[in-house]
Design a protein around this nucleic acid. Sequence first.
DNA 1: GATGAATGAGGCTTCATTCAT
DNA 2: CATGAATGAAGCCTCATTCAT
Lengths: 241, 241, 241, 241
Amino acid sequence: MLEDHRPRVAAERRARMRRTLLEAALLVFAEKGVDASVIDDVITAAGVSRGTFYNYFRTNGELLIAANEELGNELVRHIEERVASLSTPAARLATGIRLYFDVSRRFPLLAHFLARVGPQAAGPGNLLYTYLPVHLAEGVKRGEFVEMPTLAALDIIVGSGILVVTRISAGEADDKYLHACLLGLMRSLGYPSERADALLATPLLPLDFDDESLLVRTHRRYMDQKRPKRTRSPSPAPRRA
Amino acid sequence: MLEDHRPRVAAERRARMRRTLLEAALLVFAEKGVDASVIDDVITAAGVSRGTFYNYFRTNGELLIAANEELGNELVRHIEERVASLSTPAARLATGIRLYFDVSRRFPLLAHFLARVGPQAAGPGNLLYTYLPVHLAEGVKRGEFVEMPTLAALDIIVGSGILVVTRISAGEADDKYLHACLLGLMRSLGYPSERADALLATPLLPLDFDDESLLVRTHRRYMDQKRPKRTRSPSPAPRRA
Amino acid sequence: MLEDHRPRVAAERRARMRRTLLEAALLVFAEKGVDASVIDDVITAAGVSRGTFYNYFRTNGELLIAANEELGNELVRHIEERVASLSTPAARLATGIRLYFDVSRRFPLLAHFLARVGPQAAGPGNLLYTYLPVHLAEGVKRGEFVEMPTLAALDIIVGSGILVVTRISAGEADDKYLHACLLGLMRSLGYPSERADALLATPLLPLDFDDESLLVRTHRRYMDQKRPKRTRSPSPAPRRA
Amino acid sequence: MLEDHRPRVAAERRARMRRTLLEAALLVFAEKGVDASVIDDVITAAGVSRGTFYNYFRTNGELLIAANEELGNELVRHIEERVASLSTPAARLATGIRLYFDVSRRFPLLAHFLARVGPQAAGPGNLLYTYLPVHLAEGVKRGEFVEMPTLAALDIIVGSGILVVTRISAGEADDKYLHACLLGLMRSLGYPSERADALLATPLLPLDFDDESLLVRTHRRYMDQKRPKRTRSPSPAPRRA
DNA sequence: GATGAATGAGGCTTCATTCAT
DNA sequence: CATGAATGAAGCCTCATTCAT
């Protein structure tokens, strides 16, 4: 019996187009900033018509929110998956933040994007605000962290984190600086430097992203446009005298 | 002997106009944000013509930078003046931050403005970046703070501070939250909670601003436009028979 | 003997779809006006896809012309049928116009639509331009009307009629006004007021439209959307304890 | 003593620019119709920048209303001035309408414009609605017209008039047609054909407009663009074989 | 036939900046 | 210096129409 798979096919196409637009948006936001007029660049980068854009996103802001969520959540989920197996809340938290910074270093696009988005990146809807409180609460229960209002802890971590990522994106963050920030953040939660030092002494296995992940795909395009290999027209034939 | 005081008078007029424009700019930035289109509103609020504006500031950005510096430095200088007399670096730092938050609470305009400006508020040129390192270094020398790269400490303090002020501007910051943030920040520098608690236990004498200060003048206009007392026509004239 | 009735069935389906689209178009034209962007609303109202629309009408204008003709001619034919049995041209004309106004009052959708279409409603192709001249000529021959160029008489009747229907659609036309307009129009043809009065004194039996007529079907939907009875969920289900 | 006449000069400039825009608007509306997108053409015709337009009119509709009022009222005032000296209301009314049609014939631009505007031309704010009722009322008082609701008389006159002007603009209105329309309109008010005939027998002295009037100025440009004399580049030299 | 995503020309509107008065 | 009209680049958004499935 024949099925009409047109609906499914159509839905898949829609999803693909959405991704295409989000990828383009990430590139452009990272480049031009979040408050810039972006639509023209996005449709150019996506190779898509003006009208198509408006079939998916009504405004600049809607696009930013979607891009931020998609990327942010992909990242947070990966991190959570990784740290889930660690044995203490402090380890989970410290490693999570460490991974966050590490990914930002490995993917300049991400750092730029986050730096541009700034505080809004941590808007509601960001999974950070789902997971961080859990680790904090567990840490308090275990006696690893001092008791404090969740909001205060969150704001210190997230606020500091934003500036750190901004430094990373500006190329101003060396290992020593990052280490110090991590220690400082852990101390602010009441976790002693020595134990934090021990946690951070272990080598960090970098997060591994799927080749189809938004981050990797966008990163690749980002690097390509930084040092364009000009694959199309290999190189202009050098003229001789 | 007769002096030509026209130049001096002219210079004074220029300075006054500049202030007028900065006041208007602060109001508008606090209201509409930093990336908004602002000039129209500014000249309206200042009661001044388009052309005049351009005699003082060449661009939007110049205006923001000037406003930010003027306001930020007025604030920082007041704070520094106050804390100078305190006996320990930790006390100076803790009280300074405390005053910062306190002023933000008393002057919603300031909180809004800072929240809008975000991380850029802490750009170079901001006196924070002159004074904070001094307190930090002294604290380390005295053994009050652990040793860490200045940049790391600054970023934790400033980054957290931005989010805190944002909370204040959104009306989400109660005393408990603020206290926790202060403790957390001090801890992140290696200063123990108990001693920080002691420091913060003393009542805080609010900063006192001159009636002619940028902050007070702008604040007043800001509050006026929030609940307009309609000074012009006190009440509709009752009709007689 | 077996017949292939697929062609007939297909033709019927086509006709039904055409009607569906015309109904939707009438609703939308009456609501949004003739020059508005209409296709989106039409396909929504018709519950049909974009592509389907273009299988039936190539452009906006084609749709308007079709809708106008379909509705206008249905109306004119009904009126002519009714007045055919009257004994004098003056009676036929006066009653015809009277019916026109009466139907406009009973079907606000019609009034709105005609008011929106305006003078173009009376374009060539409208049966008015077929029938009116006949009555006028007969009236002249019988000595009821003065002799005058047909075009002049038509323009007075149609021009006035358009404004009258506009008044009706705006709810500004009471009985007295309508009566005066009818008398005025008859006078303009040379028919004395007293005799016109006598003609108009007879009660008017409202035109009766088939339930399947374009007018009635569209009117019903129009009224439904004006005061939606919310047939789907008759009333919010009361919660129990 | 020196006065600052800058304000006055500025106001004059503003008024001139407004006129420039209105002239351009009339040309464009007459050409493209009232519902067309017009702003681009208007600024081109006025030789003015996009931004300037928005300094004077916010929307298409605002522009139309202003143009319609300016032109309509100029016209009505001229007509009223002329007919004021006539001795009877019927003469004033008949001559007024006659002049209206006559001006429409002499100034095709006017006819086109009015035909395009259609019923809306007679919106509130149009002086017609100020003056016509006066003549009608006086006519009734004098026994020249039958008594009828003012609105009914107005709608017959204005409604018919719109179609007549449309005929004129289409070049379909000959003398006989116009005469018949005038007789018909007078009859509709209860004024007998014979007397109307007498009124209309007198030759009509055409209205005389100031060279600076909106009508004349715009008319001139309109005729110029119809048969462009190409004064700038005299004519391309004809090529020979 | 029916579908609905994609297209892109066509129009709209704002606003930073200039400049004659 | 102050003024404010004029500018026009830069964005924004809609919607009639096409076309692959």
